[in-house]
Write a protein that binds this DNA or RNA. Sequence first.
DNA 1: CATGAATGAGAGTTCATTCAT
DNA 2: GATGAATGAACTCTCATTCAT
Lengths: 194, 194, 194, 194
Amino acid sequence: MGEKSVQKKQFILETAKNVFMEKGYKEVTMKDIVDACEISRGGLYLYFNSTKEIFLEVLKMEQDETDDVFGSSVPDNAAASDILALFLKEQKKELLRKKSSLTVAIYEFFFQNKVPKKDNIIRSQFDTAVKIIEHLLDEGVKNGELYCEDSLGTARNIMFVIEGLKISAQTMGITEEMVNRELLYIMRGLVVEE
Amino acid sequence: MGEKSVQKKQFILETAKNVFMEKGYKEVTMKDIVDACEISRGGLYLYFNSTKEIFLEVLKMEQDETDDVFGSSVPDNAAASDILALFLKEQKKELLRKKSSLTVAIYEFFFQNKVPKKDNIIRSQFDTAVKIIEHLLDEGVKNGELYCEDSLGTARNIMFVIEGLKISAQTMGITEEMVNRELLYIMRGLVVEE
Amino acid sequence: MGEKSVQKKQFILETAKNVFMEKGYKEVTMKDIVDACEISRGGLYLYFNSTKEIFLEVLKMEQDETDDVFGSSVPDNAAASDILALFLKEQKKELLRKKSSLTVAIYEFFFQNKVPKKDNIIRSQFDTAVKIIEHLLDEGVKNGELYCEDSLGTARNIMFVIEGLKISAQTMGITEEMVNRELLYIMRGLVVEE
Amino acid sequence: MGEKSVQKKQFILETAKNVFMEKGYKEVTMKDIVDACEISRGGLYLYFNSTKEIFLEVLKMEQDETDDVFGSSVPDNAAASDILALFLKEQKKELLRKKSSLTVAIYEFFFQNKVPKKDNIIRSQFDTAVKIIEHLLDEGVKNGELYCEDSLGTARNIMFVIEGLKISAQTMGITEEMVNRELLYIMRGLVVEE
DNA sequence: CATGAATGAGAGTTCATTCAT
DNA sequence: GATGAATGAACTCTCATTCAT
């Protein structure tokens, strides 16, 4: 595939991502993507054979971007509790950003496609997040900022709460206040009060 | 619609429920239900006009059944912590029952149908569960079995964890061990150790 | 068929007539009539086997009523030109009564059902009207009120104009003014000016 | 749509026109046209979305052709009365051409689609014809060939008679003799007898 | 590489007609 | 007589997928 084709493929993926953000996963047809990309029907098939194939590549793209973000954005000399708070704030922003998120599409996709653990982006992102939180908790405890007896258990607990908030945001709807309340509840149990 | 038809309607709903458990919500077509019920194309339309209509009635049916269960199954003179443990065990069973659950269908349905709060079964079940847990916690604290400063906050936290486990079960897959671990984590923070 | 059944049949015909006036002929389904009559599907089939059958009986009913009207409403000792004017006025009223007329239904019916001359209500009504007009013209000429060399030809001409107005009313729409103009044009050619 | 498609679109319209001539307007389904064109179900939808859309384009096509004919076929130096006779003869041919005419389809279409005056082909053709006849009458009077006091009124009268003949041809059936008789009746009133 | 016309399978929906009760 | 549940044929419309150009 020439360089030009690589660009076109990239363009299709970016455009398709928007479509998935709009309509979720199941609803999206090849026609939707063809229309959004303003290319020919046959043209799309030169690059992808199904919405599933496209979605998988969109996911991979997403994952790469997320990895980058994760790696870069952590301030070096910040206090662990501050970083944790920052992390939670980030999650909150994501949670409340109703539209223009792949969340629903990802859920729909994984509902019907049972993928092996290692390819499961939800799983790997969950695990990564747990590890990061665990590490932050350990740091916080070491520094005396935080109190936590079981950092791994707590990290997992936090992530399940966040997952719970995430799905609730998409199904029953949640307000910013509700998210704040939950995150506060979590932090209250961790921060050492003077 | 005569008495006979009520039975048939019920039969269709039961059958359709199985179809939704099998295939989720979006995937299901009127034809799927026609085939499952072994009735004629037109026959189904005598009772329902769309899968959405059917699904809504299946949900209502479900909810009624759940209400019954909730009302009846609580032992009278049990210790609060035991009832709570029982409740969590029930949730666990539900969580791990991969197939033959409407969970995925319900998620898919509420992804695309934003219904008013009061009609949102997910919301109302969530709220009901929170109230029950809160009450149990209060009882437990009163009896000295449990320790909990903010029973409402804790109840909500527990339910969000359960929601998190529920969606995780459907997307990344979870083992019984994982569920146990989480529920244990929750209980550990509540039970007064001697 | 008992007396009761005769009444019911009559009721169906009256109701069906309204449906045909509303929707024309082709559009009407057995279901439409069942719904309008608020009887059972099977019930209708006890009396009629198709919309065509129903329409034919509606037509016959209509024809009988029209015959009655024609017979009774002619004042005995009136001047021929006055009766003619009255007749034309009646036609005008009919023409402009857009809704609640069987006109369109009749047209649609005869477009696709080529019936033998004698059963063709349009034909027989046309012929009857021609005869009446011809007679009136003859009378008028005899009395010196009217001038007309070819009473039969004129009668036919008048009726074709009226047919033309009738179809125009249903297709391109006509105003009262337009009808007046045409009828005036006709009368001007007939009335002896002093 | 490429050049090739334009040809195909044209082909569909021509074929559809025949279908409409056969079956009228209301009766015709997309499937009828698909079958007549021997194309695929989906193929037709590439060009048109409904029988209404197709019929409207067939009408436009027809109108264009008619306009051409009107413009070209008038001999230059002919006597007005001859042209008028020619015109009426043309109408007669049209009238008697029972099958293979869009007449019925057009009537059916305009029965249920009330279109604005300017888009109403029946109306505009009627008006055009009136103008032409009026002009011919004026010419004829000027030349002393014809006698007519109210050329516009007469023109309109003639056209309503023709409309009446047209609808009668489709509903009660008319013979060539009947048409001749009517046209003769009209001409007799106009031609100056020596 | 790219196009877009073409196909055909399949979903939704409506009704005429039948038939057990 | 009367009911209305049930059937199945027919129609509309949309897409995934192919293929000649």
